[in-house]
Amino acid sequence: MSIVLDASVWASAVRGATPILLAAFGCLLCAKAGITNLAIDGFITIGCFISVAVVSLTGGNVWLGMLGGIVGTAVYSLIFGLSVIKFKSNHIIASIAMNLLSTGITEFLMAPVFKAQGLYRLANIKKIPPVSLPFLEHVPVLNVLVNNQSIVVLFTIILIFILLYMLRKTKYGLNVIAIGQSAEAAESAGIKSDRVRWSVILLSGAFCGLAGSYLSTIILSEFSVGMVAGRGFTAYTTVVFGAYHPVGVAFASLLFGFADAISIQIELLKPGIATSLVSMVPYILAMVVLTISALSDKLRKTGRLEMKWKQRKQKNQIVH
């Protein structure tokens, strides 16, 4: 029980949630525009690789690495756009191909770029120090969650509200939603649907690039094969569980960050438990979460949930 309330666990939960949330934002935008983007998993891998490559080439400059990760991954995401928008491929199959391509290319380029196999550690990295916010010191919850975190974490938190505003109030956001609901109707209203689709895929690439560089140059300082470990799929799950709403998605990704942090604690405290079993937890959690949200959605659609609720209400009235 003490683990659940531990401040350091919550801080590390926020750190773990950040890359998932960033990727989830990309997935969310694509989903709003009617594109099933499971390629985010591969995008994160590419983001990790490019930022580590840039950092190692520029003598440890993490800022440049981040920039490279964002731009490079956005450019890479054009391949997905080409396949999905231009050639109208099946979204899921194109996503899987992109993921295979991403892991293939990064693993292949490890030898020529890093002169390494499987794992490359950045020796000369100049880490960005965490941002301390002195005015938060007396605010109970926020201090633990937000203070002394990386700048990327703060940016991601601000991004939740930017996205919320964008999807609700701006013309661009409404265009995105309109296309997702009915592309034909949006077209006849004068929205250039393909242009909007390209933009959401580019944005998802940029977000995933940032997620990748956060993962590889701020949390860790290395690139290894399989380091993304299905975070893109987890991100997709948070989008569904968060009911396609930026704040909901943020809480869902915090749940996964928390599960991540707890499993690290368990491994530290009880070394007897097999690591393979602990590693399984996030994936099973993702399935449970996905099932819950799908089930509640289904019940809501068939109206059974409301019926039960009404019955309960009537019962309560009788009691009173």
Binding site: Y236, A286, A294
Partner: peptide
């Protein structure tokens, strides 16, 4: 439960 089969199979 109407769960998305693509994601569950990937997670499994």
């Amino acid at each position: 439960c109407n769960t998305d089969i693509v994601v569950t199979t990937l997670l499994l």
